[in-house]
Design a protein around this nucleic acid. Structure first.
Lengths: 98, 98
DNA sequence: AATGCTTACGGGTCACGTAATGATT
DNA sequence: AATCATTACGTGACCCGTAAGCATT
């Protein structure tokens, strides 16, 4: 399971539409379709219900949606924290802090 | 930033040695070296201090280490939860639960 | 010279976009 | 026929392992 797949999944689940999700993500629909298939295969079950009118999440998909949102925002937060820590390091040699 | 990089980084930080970390991960040292470089470049600063005796984490690396552990275990937990939810769906049509 | 990490090189895998196909209304 | 998603196909990027290089002790 990769972060890309989690980000893609959140977009599809929220848009309930592969086309709109793809546009929002800046990728083509087939890329999305393949990644969602891969994700479902790895997790061992359907996450999305595809209909000609659009797409809904399954119960398992709903579980993943909540987890994925947390993880994705957690990753973003971690990146910011590390970047802040990196910048802070620069002036730390002689000034004690900040 | 990808999960692979986070897993690799945790191994290096814990082993304080690229060679041992690579062995533990089942990859070759160069693969590890490249991924750590990529990660540091993306995060905009050093995460590891390489010495001929081994490797230590920088302050920013310490921050990342804690974040990475949480994220990696969070991903694993999410996968288990979704898999459980998937199995549960199967018998839900007529039997109410279990 | 030995240890530890990095750069160079070649091969296999993966992700993507465009185009064509399938399915439902 | 129109909409939504999937499969087919070719290209480019990425990851990896082996081999060679650099630095420190």
């Amino acid at each position: 399971m990769e972060l890309r797949q989690l980000r893609y999944f959140v977009a599809v689940a929220e848009e309930q539409h592969f086309g709109r999700a793809a546009k929002r993500l800046g990728v083509a629909q087939p890329a999305l379709s393949r990644q969602m298939q891969r994700l479902e295969k790895e997790l061992g079950g359907a996450l999305l219900v595809r209909t000609p009118q659009g797409t809904r999440v399954t119960p398992a998909g709903q579980v993943l949606l909540e987890e994925a949102r947390q993880l994705v925002s957690g990753v973003d937060a971690a990146m910011h924290r590390v970047r802040s820590a990196t910048s802070t390091e620069l002036g730390q040699r002689r000034s004690s802090a900040r």
